[in-house]
């Protein structure tokens, strides 16, 4: 369970104050598939940064599984991310000198209770490519590897920052299919930040943001399968 209470984030640049988050409050249940939607500058990336402990808040509290992460030191936050969180980025951030298998090992290496890499490779459909290097893979394949890497340490929450941003519709949907399947099979809470409105239909909960505020939280009673949605 993630509880976000009255969170504010203000960036100070010289004399200029930018309110990136304004009094944001929210609850995300375990195993939920959440999509945070909003245009550029809406504060969705800041939201992801503070909820995942990558950035601090100006005021308010964030509690994850009864741990108040807004009170944590840098060291405690590192440890928290290590134990609980996985990340997927728009730029896949795969390490170019490591094979697919080794890239997933980067995640596995952090956990006492990891998921077996071969099992993950099977789940993302890339067993054959396990000895390939990133430059030998397509964008969709690379993003699937980054999903496997994030899940290898068996996190309870997976944060995804524009996971399909650099992909075309077909490969983007392949990536979302993997996420949807893993959410179901592993009961991992997934938070996707995106400006792609088509993705909202596969979420349990959709959070709409604008100018640093949540202006609507939508509970999706009739969640669709990825194959049923369309970009356009």
């Amino acid at each position: 369970m993630i509880k976000i209470k009255n969170v504010r984030k203000i960036y100070q640049t010289g004399v200029v104050e930018t309110h990136a988050l304004r009094d944001v409050s929210l609850e995300i249940k375990d195993g939920e598939f959440v999509v945070v939607l909003g245009p550029s500058g809406s504060g969705k990336s800041t939201f992801l940064n503070v909820v995942s402990g990558l950035d601090s808040v100006t005021s308010g509290h964030i509690i994850v599984d009864d741990e108040v992460i807004t009170d944590m030191s840098d060291k405690e936050l590192t440890n928290f991310r290590r134990r609980k969180l996985g990340f997927i980025f728009q730029s896949y951030n795969l390490l170019s000198n490591l094979t697919v298998y080794e890239n997933i090992e980067v995640g596995k290496n952090l956990s006492h209770n990891p998921i077996e890499i071969d099992e993950l490779l099977e789940k993302i459909g890339m067993t054959i490519e396990k000895d390939k290097y990133p430059y030998q893979l397509s964008g969709g394949q690379q993003q699937r590897v980054s999903i496997a890497r994030a899940l290898a340490k068996n996190p309870s929450i997976l944060f995804c920052d524009e996971p399909t941003g650099a992909l075309d519709e077909t490969t983007g949907k392949q990536v979302l299919e993997v996420l949807q399947r893993l959410n179901k099979e592993l009961n991992t809470t997934i938070v996707i930040v995106t400006h792609n409105i088509a993705i909202k239909d596969i979420a349990d909960k959709v959070i709409h943001m604008k100018s640093g505020e949540i202006y609507e939280i939508e509970d999706n009673q009739q969640k669709k399968l990825v194959e049923e949605i369309s970009w356009s």
């Binding site: 990558l54 060291k75 590192t78 440890n79 928290f80 991310r81 290590r82 134990r83 969180l85 990340f87 980025f89 951030n93 390490l95 980067v106 995640g107 952090l110 340490k153």
Partner: peptide, 14 residues
């Protein structure tokens, strides 16, 4: 630079 930042995000200690 990016790899280091990424490893930090992943939860690797300095």
């Amino acid at each position: 630079f990016k790899t280091i930042s990424f490893l930090k995000v992943m939860g690797y200690k300095d």
